[in-house]
């Protein structure tokens, strides 16, 4: 087996508050292989974006990594000094944010923002950086890139701006791109194009992608594997087709059941009763147990750790614990 590109182990992110410490991520572990697309799904507040921010070292204070480790090609990056971490950001891990309308600095031209980034990471002349920038804009599908490069962000539409953002995230050729809800703020008609673009361009450059989204449809079409987060904990992770067609965690099943399909005959979508607990009130045992139809005594007492399952899958659920035989 090849060495993972990114390896996250027992990641724990805490927010100290006046009323005690909130644990926003608790014992999250996963790997991303080189060139792989890992989808990361979950409800709002499940910790998807926090995971991305923790990896790239941009947790907003007072949030902090309180435990676990993050390795990029075997090298720990969660303990790097700020200067060293800055060289990882952009250069080795690129990031695409949700809202292209606010991701670009309105006072600088696209050319200025791209060449600045290229020259931060590579020792090239202004002219050389500009040539690269034009080629990159051309590649992400900006028409007449050579002319439009000197436009300001407000001259571009939302979809075009997201293409510029992708160009910016990729301009130092990172090995991993974290795309945090890259299409949520876009028109439906543009969403598929942007997702395809991210997938294509990363495949072309051999970059792995961590795709954070709450859109299972996007995951199904794009990701190789998917990780499901619930209340800051990993519920299930595995190859995308297996997880979608044959979810093992009751929460994942609930998520899949809530996706409408045209071919489906049923009148009503399945919904999961209740709401995800707030970080201040995560129940004892399995975080999902109050909403779970199959919960039993143990679920209310002990917290399940992810266990390996056949087919390169992991699930954190007592239903699948090795010593339990349960229907």
């Amino acid at each position: 087996m090849t060495e993972p590109l990114l390896s996250v182990r027992d990641l724990r992110v805490e927010f100290p508050t006046r009323r005690g410490t909130l644990t926003a991520l608790d014992g999250v572990s996963f790997d991303i292989m080189p060139g792989e697309v890992l989808g990361m799904v979950g409800e709002s507040g499940a910790g998807k974006s926090l995971t991305g921010a923790a990896i790239i070292g941009l947790l907003e204070p007072p949030g902090r990594i309180a435990g676990g480790e993050i390795r990029l090609r075997g090298e720990r990056i969660d303990t790097l000094a700020p200067d060293a971490m800055r060289k990882v950001r952009g250069k080795r891990i690129g990031m695409v944010f949700q809202d292209p309308l606010t991701s670009l600095n309105p006072l600088y031209t696209v050319a200025q923002q791209i060449t600045e980034t290229i020259r931060t990471h590579a020792d090239v002349s202004e002219a050389e950086a500009r040539q690269r920038a034009i080629a990159l804009l051309d590649r992400v599908g900006i028409p007449a890139a050579a002319r439009r490069i000197d436009d300001y962000p407000h001259h571009f539409s939302g979809g075009m701006r997201q293409r510029v953002v992708i160009a910016l995230a990729l301009c130092a050729e990172p090995e991993l791109v974290i795309a945090d809800e890259p299409t949520t703020a876009l028109d439906v008609s543009v969403q598929a194009q942007i997702i395809d673009l991210i997938k294509e361009i990363c495949a072309e450059r051999g970059a792995a992608v961590m795709l954070i989204t709450h859109d299972m449809g996007v995951i199904a079409e794009t990701a190789d594997r998917v990780a499901v987060l619930y209340a800051g904990r990993l519920a299930e992770i595995g190859p995308v087709k297996d997880v979608i067609l044959n979810a093992e965690h009751p929460y994942t099943r609930g998520l899949m059941g809530s996706i409408p399909t045209l071919t489906q005959e049923s009148d009503r979508l399945v919904q999961i009763p209740g709401a995800m607990p707030r970080l201040t009130a995560i129940p004892r045992g399995c975080a999902f147990n109050p909403r779970c139809g199959q919960a039993f005594e143990r679920c209310r007492q002990d917290r399940p750790d992810p266990v390996n399952r056949p087919g390169n899958r992991q699930v954190a659920c007592w239903l699948h614990a090795p010593e339990v035989t349960h229907g």
Binding site: I56, L58, R86, K87, V88, R89, G90, K91, G94, M95, F97, D99, T102, S103, L104, N105, P106, E116, T117, T120, H121, V165, L168, A169, A172
Partner: peptide
């Protein structure tokens, strides 16, 4: 967001 994105691109604090 654009400051967050600028940091995510690895620009120096000064920039």
């Amino acid at each position: 967001d654009y400051i967050k994105f600028a940091r995510a691109r690895g620009l120096s604090d000064r920039a």
